[in-house]
Structure formats: structure tokens, C-alpha cells
Design a protein around this nucleic acid. Structure first.
Lengths: 343, 343
DNA sequence: TATCATTACATTAACGATAATGTTACAAAA
DNA sequence: TTTTGTAACATTATCGTTAATGTAATGATA
């Protein structure tokens, strides 16, 4: 039994329409009436029924966010960035985890669309064209964060992964490293490809041979990093002089796994091996040693996405497609060290 | 221009009502018609307009979750626990951060209620009676997670903080510790009080004097833990024989700060000081040394809360108030060690 | 004075779904 | 034969809000 426009109208002996218009400061209503309506609404504790409003206006004042896993700090910081902009404009957010599963991603999207969200933020779990056709057909604005699907004409906000890879290579090179183990996520993920390209581009600028980089792939998880590193170490002829002096990790998660593997073989970081991560998780300055890494600034990505979303919502021409790129930031810590030319 | 019931009705030359009832498997509709309607709905790609449905049924199929900060893994795991149950029952979730601010908490709650959520999960940021009156007046079921407000007759799910404190004390005592620094969050937070009570209860059982525990308070943050520990260490007459051998921390965050302070004074964990945390953050096994801690099982708390929510939604009598308590789990790692009687 | 705007409202009709009634046609019961 | 019941639909009203019209009173204009 919440208060409705009708209640206010009856209280004041005016029509429902008058109340509705008064509350929205629309013309054709006298100043006195407007004031009276607003006072009465406040007194009775009126709250607009947004669902009913949506039925007429098709504006739900809700936006949906789909992420692989909100427990991953990268995604929770993106969420906060988005929220920061959205609450200012009194939009409310629906959140859903896809758990990296295309079916769940689709299901969550469908749910949100059924609820009439005015827009969707999607951090795709993987190559999932299903959700893209969904989004296209839904006819709501959407922004894709973090991952990029080259063929797609959509709005993207992502970290400049090429630059991130470049920065990492530059950092390691300037410390004297000339042989690298590059642990990547599967290359069909665009960010994996871009980081790798950036990494190699810098080395090429320094006239380093491609053979100086050993590439391995694994899932972006601790176990993934652990296993791949363990296997690599097992194949070394001389453990204390491994065939690479520095390890690039696709994510801090991977780096944690790398740490475990390295410590299992009684090697030290950075004395025996330098390690650089990617993402700058909140805890990467609590590890031992603290982890040098590349920060993708997820909060900033979230904010930028939300800004684009409101551009889309407020403009009628949805034909224009925006691509925003955020420069990552190198975070220097203790897992990388200068090495001499003879090492 | 999404498909509506009307479109299906026109396609089949039946009434809208028939379509509506057929899709919901209600009586008074022939089997053939039902099948035909369902096929046509699927063929045309019909999707129910949940907002319109809500207007009649007052069931929005949305639930709201308000947490202090989704970037805190404790809360994101609670979220996932809740989501796990909710997606099964095709409820969609609205999420909002209060940032520990009573006004934001209220605002977020209002927004969700305006959207007509069928229930609210609240992890209160602090003693905020405002949001409670809001929830009471809103006349929707709600569950309060983690924090408990003794005066309130509501549904609570929380970790057994008394037990957690008890477990921590027991662990340290059994390792031989007899003098403690107890770093608490402000005592007006019920969980801080409960943990402390549990901690002291165990020591009392062992006939240890209350004076064996030094109590300090700080915010549950790294800086909080750092500052309070630094101050404490500064006051020690002999740094290498501090007036306590073990430090209890209200949270893993606090423990990280404690780590920093201890390492700043060139003391070692656990050789010079044992440290035990609380929460079992995802990264607490990546710290150096890995952190012994108490896991409150936030995922389990979330799931339990969701179950209670659906009990509330599905039962008419909202008079009954449920209090579920989840037992925490001690996680043994390397930040605590056995000490001899002479140390 | 008759006409025309303008102001400030009221009335009516949607939005899409559902619930409460109506209305057939046909079969069974009295 | 008439009544009654029932299966299977259709009609209508309604949720709360907003948009599209309608209308009365007032003042300005010709």
C-alpha cells in the first residue's frame, strides 16, 4: 500500500495528471499548485513507481553489468568505476556473473533485458558471439569492457594492452634482461595477443631476436601459472642458470602461481628470476617479494565506460561507435632486478 | 518494438488473456491452444515484460543487495553465494555500495525499493538505524548479513564471531603464547565485541589473567593496523622482547598493516611475533609469511541468507524472525609458531 | 463586442501484463 | 425437454504512470 499519484490527487482534489506534471516540473501547472503537490508528496511519503513509469516511457533507469567474476578485483573495481558515474545520474545497477560460461552470460543478459535495462556493460568471458547478437537485437546501448572483438562494430573501452606489453618489455630490457619466458593467456583473447605484440615490438626496436622469448600459454589462474612454470623449470638443464632471466606473466594471478613454482624449486625472486605481473591486484604489494606489475586502471575503465554509456543514452544516433583506450601504468616493486651483462 | 502478448494473440486470432494463461500453464485453456501459443511465442521471440507483470502482480523478480564495498572480497563472496541461489530461481540482483556511508546506504536502499525489489540483503556499514526504519516501512522481506543489531527484530545471518575469537585464542594458547596484543575494530561493531568476548572466554577457561591481553582499536584497514602497531612497537622497552608474543588482528587487512609495521622495525614473523588475521582473504596465502587466519566463509553466509530470503518470500507470515549463525574455520599457515615456555 | 490566445487545469487513452468476469457451445442430469 | 454444469475461450477492468487531448476562465486583440 504505497502512496500513489492518485492518493496525492485525492488529497488535493486535483487530477492525477496535474500531480504527475507538477512533480516533474512540467509546464501548464501553476506555481502554487506545484508547490502544494510537492509538499503533499513529501508529507505522504510518495515514491515514484519506476516500473509503472517505465511502462510508459520505456526508460527503466536501470543498467546491467555482466562480468566473468565479481570476486576478481579487476572486475569489482570496474564495477565501482561504473557505479560512481551511475549513482550521480540516479541509475541503478544490475549485476550478474557469467563465470566465464557463454550460456550463463547469455542467460544473465536475457534476464536483464527482460527487466528492461536501459543499457548493458559487458565484460565478455570469451569469444561468445551469442551474446553479441543478443545485444544487437536487444536494441539497447551497450559498452564492451576490457576485451575487444575486432570484427564487431560496438563500443569498446579497454586498456591499451599493446602499450602494457611494451612497458613490461622496456622495463625488463632496461634492467639488463635479454632472455625471457613469456607466459600468456590463450592467444585468441585479444588482450593476450595485444600484450604479446607490444612486448615483441619493444624488443624488436632493440634489435633483439625473436628467439630470445620463449612463449608458453596457460589459463589466467594461479594453478595455470604454477603448472606451466613447474614444467618449464623441470626442463632446464641447469636450474640455477635457467634459459630465461625474466618471466612475464599475463596476470598477477599467474604470477602468484609462478612464485609458488619458483619457491618449490628453491629459487629466489628476483635474484634467480625476475617476475613481472599484470593487473596490479590489491594484494600484489603484500606478496614476497612485492610484485612488479602493470596496472590496467580498472576503475578508470569503468568510469570511462559509464561516460560513453550516457553519451549513447543521451544521443539518438547509435550509429557512431566509440573506442576508448586507457593507458596502463607500470608499477615498480621488488620482483624484478637489475642484472649484469654476464648473468 | 519487442513482441508482446498482443502480437501473439493477433497472430493466432485468440485473445490476449488466452495467450497469457497458456504461457503460464493456467487452467481453462485447451492443450492444443497452449501448445500453439507456446510455439508461436518461441517463434516470434516473445519475452515477458517483467515491469508490466510487476505492475499487476507486485512481484518484480528482483532482489537488492547493499554492501559497504564490493571490492572487499568478503562482500564479493557473499554476493556470489547469494547469486548462486538466486539465479536458480531466476531472480535478478541489484547491487549497490554504501561505501560505509549511512546516507549512501539509505539512498541506495531507496532506489532499490523504488524499483520494486522483492527483497533486500543488507550488509550494514555501521550503526545506521535510518536504513532499518526504511526497511521496516518498505514492507519487503530483508536479511541482514554479517553485522547484528541486538535491539532489532529482523533476520540475521552472521558468522559466529564469538567462536572465531575463541578459536584464535585457542590456537595461540596451544602454541604456547601467554601474552597477547589484541587489535580490534571499534567495539560498537557487534562482531568486534563478539570476537573479543570469544577470545577472552577461552583465555579465562585457561585461567589466564585479563591483563595478559593488551587491547588496541583501529579501523579495519591496512593503515589502521600499521599505525596502531607502529605506536605499540615504539612503546616497547625491548623491541626484541615485546610485551606480547602474539598479535590478534580484527581482519586480514589489519594484519597486512601489522606485517608492514613489524618489518619496518626489522622484526620477523613468526620468529619475533606471531600474527593471526581474520577473514581469510584470497591473497592471505600469498603474503610472506602466509597468514594464519579465521575464515568466516562469506560464500556460505551468502547462500544461507538467500535461502532465508526465499523462505520469507514464500511464506506469508513475516512475523517469525530467523537468526542463522555460521561457524568460522581456523586456517593454519605460517604466521604463527610454537614458542617455548621461556620465551 | 466578438474573437482569439493563453493559462491552468481535467479527461481519456495508452504502456503490457494479469485478474475478474462474461459468454458461448456442448454434454450430462433431472 | 428443460435445467445445470463445464470446458474453453473472450471481454473488461486494473496496476501506476505519462502523453495526448479537451475545456473552462481570463485577458488581450481587432
Amino acid at each position: 500500500m504505497p502512496i500513489t499519484l492518485k492518493d496525492i490527487a485525492e488529497e488535493l482534489n486535483v487530477s492525477v495528471n496535474t500531480v504527475s506534471r507538477a512533480l516533474r516540473d512540467m509546464p501548464d501547472i501553476g506555481q502554487e499548485t506545484t508547490n502544494l503537490v510537492k509538499e503533499t508528496a513529501a508529507r505522504l511519503g510518495y515514491r515514484k513507481n519506476l516500473a509503472a513509469s517505465y511502462l510508459k516511457t520505456t526508460k527503466s533507469m536501470m543498467l546491467g553489468i555482466v562480468v566473468p567474476d565479481i570476486c576478481n578485483p579487476v572486475f569489482s573495481y570496474m564495477y565501482k568505476g561504473i557505479e560512481e558515474i551511475c549513482t550521480r545520474t540516479s541509475y541503478t545497477l544490475m549485476l550478474g556473473n557469467s563465470n566465464g560460461n557463454p550460456d550463463e552470460e547469455s542467460a544473465v543478459l536475457s534476464n536483464m533485458l527482460d527487466h528492461g535495462v536501459d543499457g548493458i556493460f559487458l565484460v565478455p568471458g570469451m569469444k561468445n558471439t551469442q551474446s553479441h547478437t543478443q545485444l544487437e537485437n536487444a536494441n539497447v546501448p551497450y559498452v564492451i569492457l576490457q576485451r575487444k572483438f575486432p570484427g564487431l562494430s560496438a563500443n569498446f573501452v579497454q586498456s591499451n594492452d599493446f602499450e602494457g606489453g611494451y612497458l613490461a618489455a622496456q622495463h625488463l630490457y632496461q634492467l639488463g634482461h635479454r632472455s625471457f619466458l613469456y607466459i600468456s593467456a590463450p592467444m585468441y583473447i585479444s588482450s593476450a595477443q595485444d600484450r604479446y605484440n607490444g612486448f615483441m615490438a619493444y624488443l624488436k626496436e632493440q634489435n633483439l631476436a625473436e628467439s630470445s622469448v620463449q612463449i608458453l600459454e596457460c589459463d589466467s589462474t594461479r594453478t595455470g601459472g604454477y603448472k606451466v612454470t613447474r614444467n618449464w623449470l623441470e626442463q632446464q638443464s641447469d636450474l640455477h642458470h635457467p634459459s630465461a632471466t625474466a618471466i612475464f606473466c599475463f596476470s598477477d594471478y599467474v604470477a602468484y602461481g609462478v612464485y609458488s613454482a619458483i619457491s618449490k624449486y628453491n629459487l629466489r625472486i628476483p635474484e634467480d628470476l625476475s617476475v613481472i605481473g599484470y593487473d596490479n591486484n590489491e594484494y600484489s604489494d603484500m606478496t614476497f617479494p612485492t610484485l612488479t606489475t602493470v596496472d590496467i586502471l580498472p576503475y578508470k575503465i569503468g568510469k570511462q565506460s559509464a561516460k560513453i554509456m550516457f553519451d549513447l543514452i543521451n544521443s539518438k544516433n547509435n550509429t557512431q561507435h566509440i573506442e576508448a583506450v586507457i593507458s596502463p601504468k607500470l608499477i615498480l616493486r621488488n620482483s624484478t632486478r637489475q642484472i649484469g651483462p654476464d648473468e
